[in-house]
């Protein structure tokens, strides 16, 4: 009976958290099924109208935007994060490894607002990026980054990079160096060794990083809100707009709920696909 006497005490905070999450989730479900009474914060009677409203094109576009944002952010984060993680694990000098770790992790320590404002300064028409490109004579007119998908993706990549680098680095550090040495001794040059040994063995890490990056970007709010400036609507920015600009809590609740289910569905499809791939013997 008393084999693990503190287990109950240690578990109690999780019960508290579970209670909080369940309660707020149920509140959202409840709100999503209530009618909106214009001019009042209190909801009306039970109805399914909120969900039929979501079928309108504007909401469909937000879903599409969100998925596109997630997709491109994930792709670019992986393309930048993988070499960074690889260098962080394999660099011989400790100073270089620490520098990469520090640079990759700083976005985590900057507040979301500070980080996004910095990006607004960099991405604006007279911002650092455009100014530099014009100075270098690479472009004649500033490129529109602000209030575009491109700008939002750039800022979101920065936002997602730390978590992806850390996850990929963990996966890469678990690959036995002797496997690469064995491949080398068998005649594989660097590129072949990477493509046939290192890359396939890091697939689990890539999969984990991809789903995390997807979910991470899906729930991002401040970045699309500030850099998208209302021109790039995502599910989170719409929830904010509907809930706190129009004070239509029921519609905001149903939008969040559908967003949540959508995320779960996307990740489930993704995971099934990966499992298929694994069974086919890719890993």
């Amino acid at each position: 009976m008393n084999k693990r006497p503190f287990l109950g005490w240690f578990a109690s905070p999780s019960i508290l958290i579970a209670f909080g999450i369940t309660a707020s989730f149920l509140a959202i479900v409840q709100y999503s099924l209530r009618a909106h009474v214009p001019g009042s914060l209190d909801p009306g009677g039970f109805t399914l109208e909120n969900f039929t409203t979501l079928l309108k094109a504007v909401y469909g576009q937000a879903f599409l935007n969100t998925v596109l944002l997630c997709f491109w952010t994930t792709v670019f984060t992986l393309l930048i994060g993988y070499p960074l993680a690889y260098a962080m694990i394999r660099a011989k000098s400790l100073a270089l490894r620490s520098a990469i770790l520090l640079i990759s992790l700083t976005p985590l320590f900057l507040g979301e607002i500070v980080r996004t404002y910095s990006w607004m300064i960099v991405l604006g028409n007279r911002g650092f990026l455009n100014a530099s490109l014009i100075q270098l004579d690479l472009i004649d007119r500033p490129i529109d980054f602000m209030f575009t998908m491109t700008g939002v993706v750039i800022a979101l990549v920065h936002f997602t990079l730390p978590i992806v680098v850390v996850m990929l680095a963990a996966a890469l550090s678990h690959i036995d160096r002797n496997l690469e040495r064995a491949a080398t001794s068998l005649g594989a040059g660097r590129v072949r060794c990477f493509l046939t040994v290192t890359l396939p063995l890091s697939i689990p890490g890539i999969v984990a990083a991809t789903s995390t990056s997807f979910a991470w970007t899906f729930s991002a709010f401040a970045t699309p809100q500030m850099i998208g400036g209302g021109k790039v609507q995502t599910i989170s920015t719409l929830v904010y707009q509907v809930g706190f600009a129009s004070f239509n809590f029921p519609l905001a609740a149903s939008l969040s709920l559908v967003g949540l289910l959508f995320t779960i569905a996307v990740l489930a499809i993704f995971n099934t696909g990966i499992r298929r791939l694994e069974q086919m013997g890719a890993h």
Binding site: D176, N178, L179, R181, A182, A183, T184, S185, L186, G187, A188, G189, C193, V197, P200, L201, H283
Partner: peptide
């Protein structure tokens, strides 16, 4: 000469077989 051109066979302590 880089290791991949040395034509040497190695058996490692942990065998280092490619698990995939």
């Amino acid at each position: 000469v880089p290791p991949h051109q040395r034509e040497i066979g190695i058996v490692f302590q942990n065998y280092a077989l490619f698990p995939h």
